Simulated assay, not measured.
Amino acid sequence: MNNLSKVGIFSLMLAASLTIMVGSAITPALIEISQHYGVEDMATWLTTLPALGVVLFAPLAGRLIDRLGSYVSLCIGLVLYGALGVSAIWLSGTIPVFADRILLGGATAIVMASSTGLLAEFFVGEERLKMIALQGMSIEAGGIIFLSIGGVLGGIGWQWPFMIYLIAWIALLFILIFVPFKKSMHLEESQETKASTSKTIFPVLLSALLAMTMFFIAFITLPFYLANNFGLGSETTGYFLAMISLIAVISASIMPKMVKRFSDYQTLLTGFSLFTLGFILLTLGQSFLIVAIIAGIVIGFGFGFTIPLANHMVVEKSNVSNRGRNLAYFSSFTFLGQFLSSLVEGISTNVVIIYIIAISIGILIILFYSMWLRKGNKRQTVQAH
């Protein structure tokens, strides 16, 4: 560890937690916000366009970090994040608003990459992995807190949820005070023998993309589903979505036990099965709020058994020389999944049709992983003989 206090660690975790809320902070008030901008038919793009921005600007963010270092880049990213996030209040017109959301995604790419890069400069070995794990928990916890706050602020007025983005400037202040500036240092472990190839890493990245797509299909359609079927407002919807994030944190904490008892791919299969079951419940239980709650819990467990595990698998399949690049790929694929969820959602205005499509995707993934595991078992049987 390199002279980073607990408050300094908290500062970096606060900055990292901003990544998950870039699209979801306004989700509880999405109906009111889309009505204000006159984009009711494209409402979900407001939450998913930042994900497209991450995918588009991730290469530029990497170049910025290589040139200026993680510390300076993080500070720049936080300034832009707060400014672009809150400025949407004063914009009008579809193109300016959508452009602002894409640029916000670019700022998020800088914050996401540089905050992890800065952690890597202060920690090595097992301590680094522990900090990255803590970062993942902080991101999920931030999702719970910011969603709840977004729901409360949305109940006051459509514009208030955008004020959450100013937390980036608070994080910037904490970093300037409690995180010491240092030039990039290459404190690496001894060279590892394991290496990754596109054949070993791509299936994991594809799993992350599909899992995030399914999760966000639920996330961006639930405000409309809950409002139309049960008359829930933005504040209650915020609590409902926060509940899903809380379940995701809980399931992520027990995911390692699942992997130890079964295997990584079997756990992924379980996660996608839970996603599929959740959409089936939402499709069949439109008249019963308790069924929707159960579906939310099931979908939360699906997230905890897929995205954190895929992140772990990327680390395990990487070595020192390519870990950063592979984790950058992981970030791009997860945010691309968020963006693709809007394309799926845009197929129909009927959420039931969207859920049927999600169920179909889930069944195809389940069949794929079932065949994958069966082939793997056959190969192990042949090698044993």
Rank of each mutant, 00 (worst) to 15 (best):
A51Y: 05
A51N: 12
A51P: 14
L52F: 02
G53N: 09
G53V: 04
V54L: 06
V54M: 03
V54K: 08
V55T: 13
V55S: 00
L56F: 11
F57E: 12
F57W: 05
F57A: 04
A58T: 15
A58R: 10
P59D: 01
L60N: 02
L60T: 02
L60R: 08
A61N: 09
G62L: 01
R63N: 06
R63K: 13
R63W: 03
R63T: 00
L64Q: 09
L64A: 07
I65A: 05
I65W: 06
I65R: 11
I65D: 10
D66P: 07
R67V: 02
R67Q: 14
L68I: 13
G69S: 05
G69V: 08
G69R: 01
S70F: 15
S70R: 15
S70L: 10
Y71V: 06
Y71F: 12
V72Y: 04
V72Q: 13
V72M: 04
S73E: 10
S73R: 02
L74Y: 05
C75V: 13
C75L: 15
C75R: 14
C75Q: 14
I76K: 02
I76A: 03
G77V: 00
L78C: 12
V79L: 15
V79Y: 02
L80Y: 02
L80D: 08
Y81M: 05
Y81K: 01
Y81C: 04
G82Y: 05
G82C: 10
G82M: 07
G82I: 01
A83R: 02
A83V: 13
L84D: 05
G85I: 03
G85Y: 02
G85M: 00
G85T: 15
V86M: 09
V86N: 04
V86D: 13
S87V: 15
A88C: 14
A88L: 09
A88S: 15
I89Y: 11
I89N: 06
I89G: 07
I89T: 01
W90V: 08
S92Y: 10
G93F: 10
G93W: 10
G93L: 00
I95E: 14
I95T: 15
I95W: 09
